[in-house]
Design a protein around this nucleic acid. Structure first.
Lengths: 182, 182
DNA sequence: ATTGATTTGTTGAATAGTCAACAAATTGCG
DNA sequence: CGCAATTTGTTGACTATTCAACAAATCAAT
């Protein structure tokens, strides 16, 4: 919580927003540092002050989103799957541009698996899958199975331009998880 | 023209936007410098770096808008009144929050007269009102008459929440001016 | 009027951002 | 391929912004 200098916060915010915008327009490899600087209204040198290169910047952005989701998870640990999922889907909605380009085929190929890892990690922490209706199953099978399921649903949601409200997505995926994991 | 340090431009832009936002929410006298700094996401000291106080800041904003309108006028000097007015009304529309709070009774009482002065000044520069259908009239009477007319129309437009598109306002006021001044 | 709280305007030191210039690396095209 | 143009990453000097601290001014209510 140590107070970050306001200038740093503003510059990084502008830079990250610029990247997400640009990524919805063209492939990451076709984006130059100068493009980012222009869009962010920041001197090119400022970017090097915080990131070693384009990919480091993207990595840090991914890292940050993953971490925000992790925090959301912790704060929602006492909720049902339906409520908890809604918190996630709200976050997705708020960062639509980022997630939809990230999950689109050529955003950052690594993102999908980072995302899946997080989902599974959180399932593992929140649910004891070896009790109840899932006795006898191998834990990793269960986790991989339902982790992939939820990630796939999210992917579908973005690729089809969020055809359902976040609330509905949360309720339906939540219900499916409840039915299988609680 | 590109010699203003980027940081100065960004800070001033943020500060001015913050003020227009805040002015649409409460009276200028109820706005503290800290309010502005918070909204602009800028240190309080930064404001004093550019403006001596709240009212100086507001003055400079007014000055700038008046001047922008003046420049627009020059660049539109070869147009008909209808075309030229459209340029103005587009500018009004783009800065809706500012103009509507400025022309609202409690905005800045001085603004209306500054605005009227500009309109008259530009009429004087663009139109020879003593020729044609206006021979025999006193120039200042004509200028004051039609200056007030256009300012009043703009005022009405803002106070009623821009009930007509800028294009229509420009066409109608433009036609009325053409009929009387050309 | 006397309090206590908020806002103001100013200071000085620390630092983030700017800008221009540079060489090295990469791209792209005939 | 080879060459020109662009992009990259780095540097150093300069300056705008930040932040915390301060006393003075203003406000609000008893």
């Amino acid at each position: 919580m140590s107070k970050v200098d306001r200038r740093i916060a503003k510059s990084q915010e502008a830079i990250k927003n610029a990247v997400t915008e640009l990524m919805s327009e063209k492939n990451i490899d076709d984006i130059t540092i100068q493009d980012i600087a222009d869009r962010a209204n920041v001197n090119r040198g400022t970017i090097y002050l915080h990131y070693t290169d384009k990919y480091d910047l993207l990595d840090k952005m991914i890292e940050e989103h993953i971490n925000n989701l992790r925090v959301l998870c912790r704060s929602a640990s006492e909720m049902t799957f339906q409520e908890g999922n809604y918190v996630w889907f709200e976050y997705f909605e708020r960062h639509y541009v980022f997630f939809s380009t990230m999950l689109a085929s050529k955003g950052a190929p690594s993102f999908r698996s980072r995302f899946l890892d997080l989902v599974i990690e959180e399932f593992k922490a929140e649910v004891d899958v070896t009790k109840g209706k899932n006795v006898g199953f191998h834990e990793d099978v269960i986790l991989q199975f339902f982790g992939s399921a939820i990630v796939g649903a999210v992917e579908w949601w973005f690729k089809n331009g969020m055809p359902l409200p976040a609330r509905v997505m949360a309720e339906q995926t939540g219900a499916l998880l409840d039915r299988n994991l609680e």
